[in-house]
Amino acid sequence: MVAGHSLGEFSALVASGVLSFEDGLKLVRERAFAMQEACELSHGTMAAILGLDDKKIELICKTTPGIVVTANYNCPGQLVISGEKKSIENACENLIEVGARRAVILPVGGAFHSPLMETAKERLSKAIKNTKFLKPNCPVYQNVNGNGIIDPELIKKNLVAQLTSPVLWTQTVQKMIFDGAKQFIEVGPGKVLQGLVKKIDRSVEVHQGI
């Protein structure tokens, strides 16, 4: 089984044989251009919220005027929100008032994984439609629902939906563990995902891949 966080989902698709390395690069490029175009049409940002229950964050997002949504469920006590700049600033103030340990505006170029990325869907969808997707050699646990997927057509739909949907990383890792995962290997130079996995479930092993 494989999974990738946000953009990392494309790496997971290459690793599982769904995409060739070359096609993976092409889709990542198209996704980047599509999202940049969406960023230029809006004034959005993101913020990391630390030390507060997910339900409380979701409630503040719903009750704050403007566009504010949950974007990344990274691990218990660490969630990222996304939306219009002013609305994010207001939400951060409200979240501190209800008990968040920190609410930090992130240095990003836009409101990723939010409705402000809606215009990026058409370009990415077209690129995906023109790309060959094979059946994976193992389940690909996708961000939009945390489930292990083997149907190439559903994988395509989920990739497009991911642009405006939250990254359910906590739920994804929990589902992988429920389905039998006991060791997680992070492929790449960093250790961020290893840290998140251990915060989600300390009983599993984490390792650095080559």
Rank of each mutant, 00 (worst) to 15 (best):
P76H: 11
V98A: 09
F133K: 01
G51L: 00
N72Q: 08
E22G: 04
E93W: 00
R31S: 03
K175T: 14
I57N: 12
V98G: 08
K191F: 13
M35W: 01
Q208I: 11
E9Y: 11
S114N: 08
E58T: 14
P139V: 01
A100P: 04
D54G: 02
V108G: 08
Q78P: 09
I185Q: 12
G148D: 04
M46I: 06
E97L: 13
G146S: 02
K126P: 03
A161P: 00
G44I: 00
A161V: 00
G195M: 08
Q194A: 13
V140N: 03
G109H: 04
K55Q: 15
Q194R: 15
L134D: 08
A3G: 04
L154S: 12
K121L: 02
E93Q: 11
L116M: 04
G66C: 08
A181C: 14
T172P: 04
H113R: 03
L163T: 05
S82A: 06
K191V: 13
C138K: 13
G8K: 07
S82T: 05
A181F: 06
P189E: 11
T119S: 13
R102F: 07
G110S: 03
L134T: 03
L7E: 06
R123S: 10
L19D: 02
L134F: 02
T164Y: 05
P107W: 00
W169D: 12
Q194D: 10
E118P: 00
V68M: 04
A47M: 14
S11P: 04
A34T: 00
S11H: 03
V160A: 04
N130R: 08
K85D: 15
Q174F: 15
S42Q: 08
K135G: 03
E205L: 12
L41P: 00
G190L: 15
K55T: 15
A48P: 05
L168P: 04
G148V: 09
S87W: 15
D54Q: 14
H113G: 12
M117N: 00
I150Y: 01
Q36Y: 07
I200A: 07
Q142E: 01
G195S: 12
T70D: 10
I57A: 08
S16H: 06
E30G: 05
L168S: 06
Q208P: 05
F184R: 10
N147G: 05
M176T: 02
P76Q: 11
I149E: 14
G24A: 12
I105P: 04
E58F: 15
G17Y: 03
E93L: 10
D23F: 14
F112E: 02
K129H: 12
A120Q: 05
C61Q: 12
D151M: 13
I57G: 06
L7M: 10
S114T: 10
F33V: 14
H207W: 03
F112I: 00
I149D: 05
G110A: 08
R101W: 09
F133T: 02
R102Y: 06
A161N: 01
V140T: 00
K86L: 14
L116D: 02
A111K: 00
I155A: 02
L59E: 15
C92D: 14
T170R: 14
H5A: 08
V28R: 07
A47G: 10
H113E: 13
T164A: 01
S165L: 11
V80G: 13
N147H: 13
Q194P: 12
